[in-house]
Design a protein around this nucleic acid. Structure first.
Lengths: 242, 242
DNA sequence: CCGGACGATATGTCAGACATATCGATGCGC
DNA sequence: GCGCATCGATATGTCTGACATATCGTCCGG
């Protein structure tokens, strides 16, 4: 089966890991026990065992699986997953996340981001402040177009986390970026132009600029509260629809 | 070279990933470019290319490396690392962490753990509360033995994060556990018995038990502040010694 | 009824080959 | 002399088939 046709011939180990990873977090393979054997996966994805095994290593590095000899490879339970890994987060969001998961994410953002804004107010440098300002400027320009608004929005939140000067806070950026990609899907589905959120972002920026840590904390908290309310409203609406 | 003697014959892919990962975060391989080729790694670790490649996949899943064809495998710069991965954290702490990194970790704990204590105060169940209480009881018993104290201390902080009922907070437990393993090395090297920290932990537990979110927040913040002061004192002392 | 031996089966490891992309040098034409 | 296409060297990527190793079930004997 060397170089078979061209069917399903795109990624390699990464593509296979992508599919299996998504399946695991979607609950296709239940915690403890399960997961098809390597040669079955070879057949299913039309790849050699080397590639399949490399894909499995990618997943094992993220805490999704664990292999033992004779027994086979089993999906690990949710507590073992690296929930703070961007790929794992993306997989969990892929197939329509449950409300509890969305709110967990929002609660964590409500903890981390206001604190990050306060740290950024204390620690920003000309360069990191400029990155925040640049992102905000583009948000203002796109205030009437939800599609154009999403990207600078991500950059805005990321720039603040980076401006903290704290490696761990900066590491959250990868998570927040993935999460924002979903929140706009949920929160702005029924909302109009993103213009109303611009003043809230401006308040964060200005507090950071004048090194007002408490003000930045409060402004960011207000911003996330608004997102939470939007999401909550839409989740309720979706539930009513079912 | 099938089954060579028994020398350096322990782990497999995990062991090799361990060594290379530690080397990368230690700065042996500088950001962008670098890292020996696969066959060179085979020679160096006495393993076949399959095993080496699987080890490299483990590292690539954590953002430490990136491979391209002809060019080779390069170490990625620090911003790309999954800083919130427990293994990456452990590697960074392995070879005596720099002060900045230790304080970054403490600042993050000061953001996350007080908020977690507050969430736990609101959301704990009989089972999750019992886990906190059990860990604290053992801390009291080991109040005069630093060696015995470390393990229940870890369990105490982890139990609180789990008691939040929030998946992301619970995911921090893996990080905190690794970090605590180092803080006791740094903070208690010159400290006596851990007894003085027991009342601070008790205050956290009791606030959670009576569902006093604000009190739990404040008590946990006080606890971490004390750790920060201990670490700071020891870092200064270490610097003076050099 | 219990316990040890044994075979079946999964992952783990090895070896060698070919595929593929890309960097760098070479040499051609202008 | 200079730019550009060509080609070879070299790294990772993939495939194949074999053997090693641990462990679960089963079967057999005490």
């Amino acid at each position: 089966m060397s170089t078979p046709a061209t069917i399903t011939r795109a990624g390699g180990a990464a593509r296979i890991a992508e599919e299996i990873g998504a399946a695991i977090v979607a609950g296709v393979y239940r915690p403890d026990e399960l997961v098809p054997g390597e040669l079955e996966l070879c057949r299913r994805y039309g790849a050699s065992r080397s590639v399949v095994r490399e894909a499995l290593k990618l997943l094992s590095a993220k805490g999704l699986i664990e292999s033992r000899k004779r027994t086979g490879t089993r999906a690990r339970s949710r507590e073992a997953w690296n929930a703070l890994d961007a790929d794992v987060l993306a997989w969990r969001l892929k197939n329509g996340a449950e409300p509890k998961f969305v709110f967990d994410m929002l609660h964590m953002r409500a903890v981390v981001e206001p604190a990050a804004a306060a740290m950024a107010a204390r620690s920003h440098t000309p360069a990191t402040l400029a990155a925040i300002e640049e992102a905000f400027a583009e948000m203002e320009r796109a205030a009437n177009d939800a599609a154009l608004y999403a990207d600078p929005d991500r950059r805005f939140h990321k720039a603040i986390l980076v401006a903290t000067g704290n490696d761990f806070m900066a590491a959250f950026a990868a998570l927040i970026e993935v999460a924002l990609g979903m929140f706009v899907r949920i929160a702005s589905r029924h909302a109009g132009a993103p213009a109303p959120s611009v003043p809230l972002h401006r308040a964060v920026l200005e507090a950071i600029r004048r090194r007002d840590a408490d003000g930045a904390y409060a402004a960011m908290l207000a911003l996330i509260d608004r997102t939470s309310r939007n999401v909550e409203r839409n989740v309720r609406r979706a539930k009513r629809r079912t």
